[in-house]
Design a binder for these strands. Structure first.
Length: 203
DNA sequence: TGAAGGATTTGT
DNA sequence: CAAATCCTTCAC
C-alpha cells in the first residue's frame, strides 16, 4: 500500500519508532499554505527525535494539556511555545499512547518561497540572509506562520500544513549527533542534519 | 496559588 | 553572556 498519495506523506508513514522516522524526514518537503493562499515550501534539513523513556521528551512524565498530541496517533502536529517567544514544530510518530515526535529544526526554503516572503517587506530586515530564514526551530515557525493553533491537528491540506516526499533525485549524506539545548538525555545521538547544508541551525 | 524554568534567538 | 517573555509544570 502506498504511503504517499498525490505526493503527500500520509499518517501511516509516521507509524514507526521516532528515531527511525526522524532521519528519513531529511530531504522531505514541509508545505505550508499561507493565509493568502500561497504555498510555501521548505526542504527539511535538520531534525531531532523525542520519544518514550527519554527524559528530554515533553511526554516523559505524563499526559498534560500541552503535550497531549505527543500521545496521539502518528501524523498529528504538536506545536509548543518556548521561552514565551518562539514556537517549535513537531510531527507525531509511532503509535497512540506512545509519546514521541520529531522536532523540525531547520528548512531550506525554495526559491519561490523566498521570493514571496521577501515581499512581505518586514521579513528581510529582521531575519538576515535569506538562506538562514528557516535555520532554527523557532525561526522556521515564525517565518511560516506556525503557532499553537495547529497543535493537535492532522498534518494535512485541511490544516494548511503537510509533508511531501523527497524529489526522486534527492541524495545527501546525513550527520548524526547529540541533540541541542537539553539538560537531560544528552547522550542520545538523536539529531540528524544534511551535511554541509547552509540552512542547518548549528553544524 | 506561586515559583521556577524552558527542545530559542538576538544583540551586547 | 544575558535578556526577552509567557506558559506549563510541580510543589506547598
Amino acid at each position: 500500500m502506498s504511503l504517499s498519495v498525490g505526493s503527500r506523506v500520509l499518517p501511516g508513514w509516521f507509524a514507526r519508532p521516532v528515531e527511525q522516522v526522524a532521519p528519513e524526514l531529511l530531504g522531505c518537503w514541509l508545505v505550508r499554505r499561507s493565509s493568502s493562499g500561497q504555498l510555501w515550501r521548505g526542504m527539511i534539513v535538520e531534525t531531532e527525535a523525542y520519544g518514550p523513556g527519554d527524559p528530554a521528551c515533553h511526554g516523559y512524565r505524563k499526559v498534560t494539556n500541552r503535550n497531549r498530541p505527543m500521545f496521539g496517533p502518528p501524523g498529528l502536529i504538536y506545536v509548543y511555545l518556548i521561552y514565551g517567544i518562539y514556537h517549535c514544530l513537531n510531527l507525531v510518530t509511532d503509535a497512540e499512547r506512545i509519546p514521541s515526535a520529531v522536532l523540525i529544526r531547520a528548512l531550506e526554503l525554495d526559491a519561490a518561497t523566498l521570493t514571496d516572503l521577501a515581499q512581505k517587506s518586514t521579513e528581510g530586515k529582521t531575519l538576515g540572509s535569506p538562506h538562514r530564514w528557516a535555520a532554527g526551530p523557532g525561526k522556521l515557525c515564525r517565518v511560516l506562520d506556525i503557532n499553537r493553533d495547529l497543535s493537535g491537528a492532522w498534518l494535512s491540506p485541511a490544516a494548511g500544513l503537510w509533508v511531501e516526499p523527497p524529489l526522486p533525485t534527492f541524495q545527501a549524506p546525513a550527520v548524526q549527533t547529540k541533540r541541542i539545548g537539553i539538560s537531560q538525555g544528552q547522550e542520545l545521538l538523536w539529531r540528524w542534519y544534511i551535511k554541509d547544508n547552509p540552512a542547518v541551525s548549528t553544524p
